[in-house]
């Protein structure tokens, strides 16, 4: 029989051992089964959400008709887009600053820059709540200005991630290229724009996607900075989840999952692309 003709398992081929495969399968089942059930039942034609009663897009229709939910999705995407753009600028500048210059208190600046990444979300959310309350930040501005508080909070925890990614990319930069550009008469700005920026581009793109996903996904910090008129998608889903388990929440969640998978795929594709062209 063919089955027994497989080459023997070498001592270090742990991955080919049965118990190891069973362990991996069980873990992946644990990680994916709840999500798959969630997505599957967003297509289920039953309010009870447990017995399969046929395929339907009804609940997606309901989600689209749900003005509150759609407004929240619009808010989330607007905030994520704004936060990404500003985070790219701030993060890239921060990366270049830390990579290029020696300056007093550099270790302190570097440490503080890493803090938003490690501070517990709840502490940061609380700090933002207190800060905007202290400033008496206006809450009744017209859209999209009323999203400014949330956007500022998101930029604060997104741009250090961009800085980190871009700086890792800069580590592989050959400084002689920039010096050559300057020797050949490029100004400081031209050297930055034409030599350094193209080198940083893959890092910036990766950072941008990271910032966009982080902003889109954030619940805790947003929860503390959002007001009644500035609900984001996760905050809205949170209030729905608290209330009950319904197919409509499943559909809303599935939309966000699809969005994330799409973004991740784009990110991975772009990485392959930049690797191929680099």
């Amino acid at each position: 029989m063919n089955l027994f003709k497989r080459p023997a398992i070498a001592p270090l081929e742990y991955t080919r051992r049965l118990w190891m495969r069973a362990w991996i399968a069980a873990t992946l089942f644990f990680l994916y089964a709840p999500l798959l059930v969630l997505v599957a039942f967003s297509f289920n034609d039953s309010k009870r959400n447990i017995v399969w009663r046929g395929f339907t897009f009804k609940y997606y229709g309901k989600v689209i008709e749900n003005d509150g939910l759609m407004a929240a999705l619009g808010n989330s995407l607007t905030i994520a887009a704004l936060a990404t753009v500003i985070s790219i600028v701030l993060g890239t500048l921060a990366a270049v600053m830390l990579w290029r210059f020696r300056f007093p208190f550099k270790a302190a600046v570097e440490g503080t820059m890493a803090l938003p990444i490690v501070v517990p979300e709840i502490c940061m959310g609380v700090a933002m709540l207190v800060f905007f309350a202290k400033l008496d930040w206006p809450t009744d501005l017209p859209w999209p200005l009323n999203l400014s508080a949330i956007t500022i909070a998101h930029i604060t925890f997104c741009f250090p991630f961009v800085a980190m990614v871009v700086r890792a990319r800069l580590a592989g930069f050959n400084k002689e290229q920039e010096e050559a550009a300057k020797d050949l008469g490029a100004t400081e700005w031209q050297a930055f724009r034409d030599v350094l920026l193209p080198h940083m581009k893959p890092g910036i793109i990766a950072g941008a996607l990271l910032a966009f996903t982080l902003s889109l996904d954030d619940f805790v910090i947003t929860f503390f900075t959002s007001g009644p008129n500035t609900i984001t998608f996760p905050v809205k889903v949170y209030s729905m989840v608290r209330f009950s388990v319904t197919p409509e929440v499943n559909a809303a969640s599935a939309i966000l999952i699809f969005l994330t998978i799409l973004l991740t795929t784009v990110a991975l594709k772009l990485q392959d692309f930049t690797k191929a062209t680099a």
């Binding site: 990680l31 994916y32 089964a33 709840p34 999500l35 059930v37 969630l38 039942f41 959400n49 996903t213 889109l216 996904d217 619940f219 996760p234 889903v237 949170y238 989840v241 388990v245 929440v249 499943n250 969640s253 966000l256 999952i257 994330t260 998978i261 973004l263 991740t264």
Partner: peptide, 16 residues
């Protein structure tokens, strides 16, 4: 799964 929203993963676990 790590890229999927924390809230949604929690909700998925609640439903099962």
């Amino acid at each position: 799964p790590f890229w999927t929203n924390l809230l949604i993963r929690t909700y998925a676990l609640i439903t099962v």
